[in-house]
Design a protein around this nucleic acid. Structure first.
Lengths: 302, 302
DNA sequence: CACTGCTCATAAGCCCAGCTTATGCCCTCA
DNA sequence: TGAGGGCATAAGCTGGGCTTATGAGCAGTG
């Protein structure tokens, strides 16, 4: 599979600290200034940038006695670096929410797909507006989300099922749909006509286990007929199998957006089945969200 | 601005090596197996995962004498980690292309926006299909791209201007458009009616310098009338100024997609101006791309 | 003209994170 | 009951990144 000769990414990509430093240099136009901002000394910054240039084999900044500017290549590298740092920020805010299980001002319960793909972005936006709101996150299925809310162990929930659990009010915050995907080499990727639901039902698919949200939606749409090629217990495992060419899979648009953009997977048009589903914010009937929960709710709609 | 107390991301986010290790553990279901794959010893993997758990304050894997499985929180963390690693892969493939200036099998010349936002994804896809194609990248404006191609110093080019440089054949590979954006707090973000071109032309904007591709398109669309609030020399600088609330900016949709998703910027609808532009692959007239250049060209269209 | 203040670079020394090797315990399966 | 795969712990090494101390180049100023 992946070649063992290829030394790991971590050896070829500068670490986060170096990338943050590079972004600071780009923004401030000076090594010393960037060092100050990050709370390190100027020689440390100087040496770190230099060793990054050595590692990449590319000159990144033009130094002068009046400051430092990015080279053309440096500007490009800095933009790519920003992507890594942004992903790291999402990771950070998510991990923090996961850690502070107790006594937070805003306790969120969310389904897996939403927690994976949408929540970090929302939390970053929330932090931008209200920097000191401590958020805690509990991820689980719809039933678990409902349970937490009703036990007053969460202030706001997010679910992605077809139905709203009883005892909860809800509002639709986004739409999602399941799509059929295969690896680029699969015969279906060269089809001209859209796929019919009969064909889909007749073909063994890479699926989530029974009981998962996605599986429920698919089974309902096909009339309980989806045929498993294999059943896996996480979206990630399903994606990996599909990318590896094991067969067609049915997954949330959210989950495969990046794989589609990278052409690691291709989407197969469907003719007659609508696998749309709503993503909803939920809360105990009558208890409209207030305070930070209300702020978060507003963020999610737009 | 950003608080100095907040210790840097790098202290709260595990480094790339640790994240890669976590992904390997998730995939293989065993610390030792993951260690083997990454070419380190089992104790090293064990300790690294443990220190990552300590750093995050979250249990990530359930160890047992028969292997290790991710906890629920671990699954979530792993998915967020995958995002970082994917961004790092894009960085890596881009940096490599930037380094290998000479004697590559495939020499690409691309405009800044394309090099920044699209090319790494293409190169990853290309590498997936042809793992050993050495690619070199030169980023510059349309004129520079044309020059390289005509001097036979590049095999395939990508430009985003309004016109195709003479001497080159081209094919449209994607569409882009410029959009007006502001920070979320700006008055325009609460407008109900779309913006007219008169209003846009009458308002001082954060702009790229004259001569840049985006500026050209905007000036043409407004009849050469764009009024600068400030002129900055990179897309990134413009974005940063806009995010900071300095005023409205006009930027490529590609460049601000993530900022929009994160709600760091909001898009202001335009009534009567179309700021669409084509992204094109280009090559010297008559010399249709062959070999790796042809493969890359195919990847970009879909 | 020299002084001040900004820039960056170099050198010497410290410290800790992460690696390795060596070992031991737990569990399962033949 | 022993073999084998899983993980943990302990001791010792190494290197990368930090600090402090110092010097040099350039701009603006009285």
């Amino acid at each position: 599979m992946s070649s063992a000769v290829t030394s790991s990414l971590a050896h070829r990509v500068p670490d986060l600290g170096a990338l943050e430093l590079l972004l600071a240099v780009a923004r401030l136009g000076s090594l010393g200034g960037a060092a100050r901002e990050l709370g390190i000394t100027q020689p440390a910054a100087s040496s770190r940038i230099r060793s990054m240039e050595r590692q990449l084999g590319v000159a990144l900044v033009d130094r002068s006695p009046r400051g430092s500017r990015l080279t053309d290549a440096g500007a490009l590298v800095t933009d790519w670096a920003r992507r890594i740092v942004e992903a790291a920020e999402a990771f950070d805010v998510g991990a923090q929410a996961l850690r502070d299980q107790r006594d937070s001002r805003l306790r969120v319960a969310a389904s897996m797909t939403i927690a994976e793909y949408l929540l970090p972005g929302w939390l970053l936006a929330l932090r931008a507006g209200r920097p000191d709101t401590a958020v805690s996150l509990l991820a689980g299925n719809s039933a678990a989300v409902a349970e937490r809310l009703l036990a007053d162990e969460a202030d706001l929930g997010f679910v992605e099922g077809l139905t709203v659990p009883t005892g909860l009010d809800s509002v639709v915050i986004a739409h999602d749909r399941l799509i059929v995907v295969t690896a680029p080499g699969h015969p279906w990727s060269r089809r001209r006509r859209p796929l019919t639901s009969e064909e889909l039902a007749a073909t063994p698919l890479i699926l989530r286990e029974k009981g998962s949200g996605t599986r429920q939606v698919l089974d309902t749409a096909l009339g309980g007929l989806a045929r498993p090629l294999i059943e896996l217990s996480s979206t990630t495992a399903v994606k990996a199998a599909a990318v590896g060419g094991a067969g067609p899979a049915v997954l949330s648009e959210l989950a495969v957006r990046e794989e589609l953009a990278m052409r690691r997977l291709v989407s197969i048009p469907m003719a007659d089945v609508s696998l749309a589903r709503d993503l909803r914010a939920v809360w105990p009937t009558g208890h409209r969200p207030v305070g930070p929960a209300r702020d978060l709710l507003h963020l999610t709609r737009a």
